[in-house]
């Protein structure tokens, strides 16, 4: 078994801010654990406030975790801190908004030359050659048609390819892609998703793919981690989680996707009950959960196996699971 490229172990992050003299706390990430195997794509799925972007910041070193451990290539993040330049070369990022992620005054050539010069010391002929090679990888060909373009001359899909090419420039082992297609038109999302798939296969890059879209996560990811208010509520093989969700929140996400093919799918959750802050020891989802029981008010459910490579944190699942286990034993 290959050892993981990235491993998060019980990672915790709380943001503190002062508002009107009072200290406010937002517990953004709560004891999150998952790992990314070589050439795997792990999707972090959640809505706003789920903590998915905070996790991206923790992985890329923009923010520091309060507790828990982030291990990259077998070495804890603390050790990498003495070699941040090397860490940044190996862990790259693709952002949501390609229009904002590129300097409007820099040509494609200049943008792509930066990581190649800074991290790999390329210049002259070698630099030019490498820029052309990367552009070819992201299918911006013929190269001479794109290399001297400025961002405003390119479409959204093409810009996102340039952003991806820039991330590839430093030959990273891991790319964190934060909603890389949500700003793009539906018809051109596929080409970026396919590009990620190709890069994992051919450039041997592993990905953390952050999205609110369970469908694209299912298309792309080996594993899906579903987050709610900073907590992992479900985690498992991509198609398994997206097809047979076991946590009520994942179920709700799946049912909320517009589905004109279905005959009136009514969600099982009363959507008018929202945003009840439940930071007092119970299940984070109980305020919106149709199945909430008394135990959900007082204890936090643990992630338990509900199938092969599939775990969910829910007391209801825990109970049915226990009875299933009993049944099979009998």
């Amino acid at each position: 078994m290959d050892s993981p490229v990235l491993k998060l172990d019980q990672v915790d992050k709380t943001y503190r801010s002062k508002k009107g003299g009072r200290i406010q706390q937002v517990h953004a990430v709560r004891r999150v654990s998952f790992e990314v195997k070589p050439q795997h794509i792990v999707a972090l799925v959640g809505e706003s406030g789920s903590g998915k972007s905070t996790i991206a910041k923790l992985i890329t070193g923009v923010e520091r975790a309060d507790a828990g451990q982030i291990v990259f290539l077998g070495k804890p993040y603390e050790e990498w801190r003495r070699a941040m330049r090397d860490y940044r070369r190996r862990v790259q990022m693709v952002f949501q908004d390609p229009y904002a992620a590129l300097n409007p005054l820099s040509t494609v050539r200049y943008t792509l030359s930066r990581p190649l010069t800074n991290y790999r010391g390329l210049k002259g002929e070698a630099l030019e050659h490498e820029i052309a090679r990367i552009l070819t990888i992201v299918h911006l060909t013929p190269v001479k048609e794109f290399i001297d373009k400025l961002p405003f001359e390119l479409s959204g899909g093409q810009l996102q390819r340039v952003v991806t090419a820039r991330a590839l420039g430093s030959s990273p082992e891991l790319i964190v892609a934060d909603e890389p297609v949500s700003m793009l038109d539906v018809s051109i999302r596929a080409e970026i998703l396919r590009l990620i798939e190709e890069l994992r296969r051919e450039a041997k890059v592993s990905f953390v793919y952050i999205t609110h879209d369970l469908i694209s996560a299912r298309m792309l990811a080996d594993d899906i981690v579903v987050l709610y208010r900073g907590t992992v509520v479900e985690h498992g093989r991509g198609d398994e989680v997206a097809k047979h969700p076991r946590h009520p929140y994942t179920e709700l996400l799946l049912q909320s996707i517009p589905n004109p093919w279905a005959e009136d799918l009514e969600p099982t959750v009363d959507l008018s009950v929202m945003d009840r802050v439940t930071d007092d020891g119970g299940c984070v989802f109980r305020g919106r959960c149709p199945y909430a029981m008394s135990v959900c008010e007082t204890s936090v459910p643990k992630l338990l196996e509900v199938g092969e490579d599939h775990r969910a944190a829910c007391f209801r699942v825990e109970m049915t699971h226990d009875s299933e286990v009993l049944n099979t034993r009998v």
Binding site: S155, G157, Q158, D185, V186, S187, I188, R189, A190, E191, L193, R194, E197, L214, I215, R218, M219, L220, A242, K243, L254, I257, P258, N259, W261, A262
Partner: peptide, 20 residues
């Protein structure tokens, strides 16, 4: 085709080639 049925068994990555 870019909007697959979320409940279908297989979901493919489908787009429309070319640019708007």
């Amino acid at each position: 085709k870019c909007f697959p049925d979320p409940r279908s068994d297989t979901i493919e990555v489908v787009g429309i080639p070319g640019t708007p």
